[in-house]
Structures are given as C-alpha cells and as structure tokens.
Simulated assay, not measured.
Amino acid sequence: MSTTIQVRVTGTADPEDELRSLLRWLKADDEVGPSAHGVLAGSAPPHPEHMGTLLDIISLTVASGLSATQLAVAIGQWRGTRRRTPDVTLRRGDTEVTVTGADAGTVRAIAELMAEPGREERPDDGGTA
C-alpha cells in the first residue's frame, strides 16, 4: 500500500530550485530513496498567459514500509544543508505538517500524515537528528 503526499518548500527565493534539490536528496537517501517516488508538479492549473506550469510541489508517493522517522530525518538533514533553512510542508488530504526539525513531535505528526485512514500507526521514536 502506498501513500501520496504533497511537499511544498517555502521561505526561499527560488522554491522550484529547492524542490528539485530536496527531490534529488530524497532519491539519493539510502533509506528513503527505495521507498519513495517523487515528481515535480503544479498545485494549480497553468495560467493561460504564462508558458508552462508553475512547479511548486513534489508529489511524493511513499511505500508503506517507509517510516515517519526515516522521512523526517532525511528532510531535516536536507534542511541542514541549505544556506537559508526553508520550511517544508507535507500535506495529505486535509492533514498538513510543517517540518522544522526531526524531533519526536514532528515524527509523530508525519506518522499521522502517512498513516492509512482507519489504521493506527506508531512512529519509531528511536532516532533524532
């Protein structure tokens, strides 16, 4: 079973460039890469007066085997490499989580976001970043 999550980066001059960087980071991560597939996408239809689509999200499909801890740590590590630390917001349906670190509260929030409706999931609180 897989889950699709929209990922948005804010607080930066070039969100599309940061999304590309985050997507490369997640694909290269030994823990996240094999369990996640992401593509850049637009959250709105293209504007008729502009060429192309504004790429402002990553549509990230994650396998059920990927833990919230692994995803939170990978995003936290990527944020730590940025000159200006951007905010990363993950959204699934009506649930939204903004990542500001990889603490236990963030991991729990991401676990709730990744959980299938009607299925309880306990995050692995064993690691910190």
Rank of each mutant, 00 (worst) to 15 (best):
residue 112 E to D: 10
residue 5 I to D: 04
residue 68 A to N: 04
residue 61 T to P: 01
residue 5 I to N: 08
residue 73 V to A: 11
residue 126 G to M: 08
residue 1 M to C: 03
residue 16 E to K: 05
residue 36 A to F: 03
residue 40 L to Y: 07
residue 114 M to Q: 11
residue 117 P to G: 06
residue 86 P to K: 06
residue 52 G to H: 13
residue 82 R to P: 08
residue 93 G to F: 12
residue 47 H to F: 13
residue 124 D to W: 05
residue 60 L to I: 08
residue 56 D to V: 09
residue 123 P to C: 09
residue 93 G to D: 09
residue 86 P to G: 12
residue 12 T to Q: 03
residue 18 E to T: 09
residue 16 E to P: 01
residue 110 I to F: 10
residue 58 I to N: 05
residue 1 M to V: 03
residue 24 R to L: 02
residue 102 A to G: 12
residue 21 S to T: 15
residue 53 T to R: 15
residue 20 R to A: 14
residue 118 G to W: 13
residue 6 Q to T: 03
residue 113 L to S: 14
residue 3 T to V: 13
residue 124 D to V: 07
residue 52 G to P: 10
residue 105 G to M: 06
residue 52 G to S: 11
residue 50 H to N: 14
residue 50 H to Y: 14
residue 110 I to L: 15
residue 124 D to S: 07
residue 83 R to F: 02
residue 40 L to E: 07
residue 55 L to V: 03
residue 16 E to D: 10
residue 111 A to N: 13
residue 109 A to G: 00
residue 121 E to M: 10
residue 96 E to K: 15
residue 43 S to H: 02
residue 69 T to C: 13
residue 17 D to F: 05
residue 119 R to I: 15
residue 14 D to P: 07
residue 124 D to N: 09
residue 127 G to Y: 09
residue 78 W to P: 02
residue 10 T to R: 12
residue 29 D to A: 06
residue 48 P to G: 09
residue 23 L to G: 00
residue 46 P to L: 10
residue 106 T to G: 09
residue 67 S to W: 04
residue 86 P to H: 11
residue 89 T to P: 04
residue 67 S to D: 14
residue 94 D to F: 05
residue 60 L to H: 11
residue 126 G to K: 08
residue 16 E to Y: 00
residue 80 G to T: 03
residue 80 G to C: 01
residue 82 R to Y: 08
residue 91 R to F: 01
residue 36 A to I: 00
residue 17 D to N: 05
residue 23 L to W: 00
residue 22 L to V: 01
residue 100 T to V: 14
residue 26 L to R: 05
residue 87 D to V: 02
residue 110 I to C: 10
residue 34 P to F: 09
residue 128 T to E: 12
residue 79 R to S: 05
residue 30 D to M: 07
residue 1 M to D: 13
residue 39 V to P: 00
residue 84 R to Q: 14
residue 127 G to L: 04
residue 9 V to M: 09
residue 108 R to P: 00
residue 114 M to F: 07
residue 35 S to R: 12
residue 117 P to A: 09
residue 33 G to S: 11
residue 107 V to W: 04
residue 124 D to F: 01
residue 49 E to N: 10
residue 10 T to A: 15
residue 4 T to N: 08
residue 65 G to M: 06
residue 112 E to T: 09
residue 95 T to D: 07
residue 76 G to F: 02
residue 4 T to R: 15
residue 58 I to S: 11
residue 99 V to M: 05
residue 9 V to H: 02
residue 103 D to W: 00
residue 123 P to N: 06
residue 19 L to R: 06
residue 39 V to D: 06
residue 21 S to Y: 02
residue 72 A to E: 04
residue 92 R to C: 11
residue 57 I to N: 10
residue 38 G to S: 02
residue 49 E to C: 03
residue 63 A to T: 11
residue 107 V to P: 05
residue 95 T to W: 01
residue 92 R to G: 12
residue 1 M to F: 06
residue 63 A to V: 04
residue 51 M to R: 13
residue 31 E to A: 14
residue 20 R to Q: 15
residue 103 D to V: 00
residue 63 A to W: 00
residue 41 A to Y: 03
residue 42 G to E: 02
residue 11 G to K: 12
residue 93 G to N: 11
residue 97 V to Y: 00
residue 11 G to E: 06
